[in-house]
């Protein structure tokens, strides 16, 4: 069965690139625009991986990760976040919040898939 990935990003172009890449790679993709939009998806349905941006309105990525980790059913799903090379301390903060790994922007599709492959089969 195809794995389901939830993509959370406030930038439409990023969402499009990412979902195009992932759908082509055979994943099911669900889309949310920010943390508050994303959180209701964690209602018990099958989500195999969360891929989220950090800077977002309403609820940012780090808060979202903390909230998701509070829900028992999603305590152990892999979580990847999108970040830029300069945000070194953000990485630490996100990891402390419970993220599994990161993807550095800008990225090519192959890099994205490789990072996902690292945490999920």
């Amino acid at each position: 069965m195809a794995k389901t990935i939830l993509i959370v990003d406030d930038s439409e172009s990023i969402r499009e690139v990412v979902s195009f890449t992932l759908e082509n790679a055979g994943y099911n993709v669900i889309i949310a625009t920010d943390g508050t939009d994303a959180l209701p998806h964690f209602d018990g349905k099958e989500i195999d991986l969360l891929l989220t941006d950090l800077h977002m309105p309403n609820m940012n990525g780090i808060e979202l990760i903390r909230e998701v980790r509070k829900i028992d059913a999603y305590k152990r799903i892999p979580i990847l976040f999108l970040t830029t090379e300069s945000q070194r301390d953000k990485k630490v903060e996100a990891k402390e919040a419970g993220a599994t790994g990161w993807i550095i922007k800008p990225f090519v599709p192959a890099k994205l898939l490789a990072a996902i492959n690292k945490v999920m089969r």
């Binding site: 305590k75 152990r76 799903i77 892999p78 979580i79 990891k95 419970g98 993220a99 599994t100 790994g101 492959n117 690292k118 945490v119 999920m120 089969r121």
Partner: peptide, 14 residues
């Protein structure tokens, strides 16, 4: 390590 969703076996595989 598994608390944040990492599966070390995947890393070994990789």
């Amino acid at each position: 390590i598994m608390d944040n969703g990492t599966n070390p076996l995947y890393l070994i595989d990789e």
